[in-house]
């Protein structure tokens, strides 16, 4: 994909829909995490917002003693947090992601997810770091909360072309070691790799206290396997060719791929990772809105 076409990555419909939810996005993320873990943002007063009256249970460290001295009443200082939320988007750019039966390859679709999420996150004044990897990290944009970064990110995404084999686990381990500040890891991949190793990588991230969201990106043909006649499958990532009649193995194949998806999902769930299955034939907007509305609902559920 050319750099000039970088704007294509931002699916306007997807952004429009996601924007509508954008007001809640940060809240959703925070709230969700607050319920689940110790808030990573606690103790960071970035910008004073307002006072409110103390009620039992509030942290006494946040009582504004100066106001108490003047008014003899207890007020709590409330702050608006800024730029301490970092989303690390990791896009699998291996050769297997270049497969696509329809309008988009998985890589293109993944790029769009990455782009839209980056836009949303930056739009909410959070920070985004973007990494595209295969066997190693091929391209990495360090975290930034500047909206101006968006253009750079789009350019990088658009310019990338997948050529190499993949090693997801190694990249996850590297990221876990390098990223000391807790944040969210958004992993976009087809997960055509050693499943156990990948799970170990995810566990490593989780162990580091990171939130992990997985976008499991698959092409509809990879799910349905709709080929007929005699077909020679020429493997990406240097896989040897296989000549077979797909119709005769279709059910086995479908069983295998479903089982693979299930294993990935279960692996994610076991590790407290949010799993989103992405079908590249579906509009990006619906995928994202499904996901975000899900997050919203989950957050609400936690709030009440």
């Amino acid at each position: 994909m050319d750099v000039e076409h970088a704007a294509d990555l931002l699916d306007p419909e997807a952004i429009a829909r996601a924007d509508a939810l954008g007001l809640h996005a940060r809240y959703v993320v925070e709230g969700y995490m607050a319920g689940e873990h110790k808030s990573p943002y606690r103790g960071f007063a970035i910008e004073f917002a307002q006072h409110r009256e103390y009620s039992p249970g509030d942290d006494v460290r946040h009582i504004d003693w100066k106001v108490n001295a003047r008014t003899d009443r207890l007020f709590i200082k409330q702050y608006e947090q800024e730029t301490n939320y970092v989303a690390n988007i990791l896009l699998d750019g291996s050769e297997s992601m270049t497969y696509g039966s329809g309008r988009h390859t998985k890589l293109q679709y993944g790029k769009m997810i990455a782009a839209v999420l980056s836009y949303l996150i930056l739009h909410q004044r959070d920070a985004v770091a973007l990494g595209i990897f295969d066997e190693g990290m091929r391209d990495y944009a360090p975290r930034s909360n500047s909206r101006a970064t968006l253009h750079t990110l789009m350019g990088r995404l658009a310019a990338f072309e997948g050529e190499q084999a993949t090693d997801i686990a190694r990249n996850l381990h590297d990221m876990a070691l390098q990223t000391t500040r807790k944040g969210i890891f958004i992993l976009i991949s087809d997960f055509f790799d050693e499943e156990e190793a990948v799970m170990e990588g995810i566990q490593h991230l989780r162990f580091g206290g990171h939130e992990v969201i997985v976008f499991h990106t698959l092409d509809p043909f990879e799910l349905e396997f709709p080929f007929n006649g005699l077909v020679e499958f020429d493997g990406l990532e240097k896989f040897p060719k296989i000549l077979t009649r797909p119709a005769e193995i279709r059910r086995t194949y479908q069983r295998e791929i479903e089982s693979f998806q299930r294993r990935v999902r279960e692996g994610c769930e076991k590790n407290g990772v949010h799993y989103v299955r992405v079908d590249t034939s579906k509009p990006l907007a619906s995928v994202l809105s499904d996901y975000l509305s899900f997050r919203l609902r989950t957050a609400k559920g936690k709030q009440h």
Binding site: Y99, E232, G235, L236, F260
Partner: peptide, 13 residues
């Protein structure tokens, strides 16, 4: 035969 470039080779195999 038809030739198809394919990613999910593992499952075909």
């Amino acid at each position: 035969f038809k030739k198809v470039t394919w990613a999910a080779m593992k499952f075909i195999k």
